[in-house]
């Protein structure tokens, strides 16, 4: 399944909802979208992964890079995920200790 991304932005807060598979093939598209938002001034980013069916280390690398970039400018990154198969990936890599992972997304601007 292709990766579909939809973005809602209010001020410096954006919510990016991802649906599909984040892998070596699709991760560059996600990286470009997130990098573009930060470049455009977004400082508080939420990535909603409740529609993600697969995520490999390439996808995790995109999220780590985004977190690093946001921290450098005083921003925040929230990962929204309530799917056990994806949460397991964060746990196995220890990244559940690095990311702020929540069950549900707050709308941009709230």
């Amino acid at each position: 399944m292709e990766l579909a991304l939809s973005t809602q932005t209010d001020g410096d807060h954006s919510v990016v909802a991802a649906r599909g598979e984040i892998d070596l093939y699709s991760a560059p598209g996600l990286r470009e979208r997130l990098r573009g938002l930060v470049t455009d001034g977004v400082r508080h980013l939420t990535v909603d992964m409740n529609g993600v069916e697969f995520c490999d280390s390439t996808g995790l690398g995109v999220l780590v890079g985004t977190l690093k970039r946001l921290r450098e400018v005083g921003g925040t990154l929230v990962i929204v995920c309530n799917q056990e198969r994806i949460l397991k990936i964060f746990r196995l890599t220890g990244l559940d200790q690095i990311f702020d992972i929540q069950d549900t997304a707050s709308p941009a601007g709230s």
Partner: peptide, 12 residues
């Protein structure tokens, strides 16, 4: 090899 990838593989 990417350490994150290796951690993932080892855990799975």
């Amino acid at each position: 090899s990417d350490p994150v990838a290796m951690a993932l593989l080892s855990g799975l």
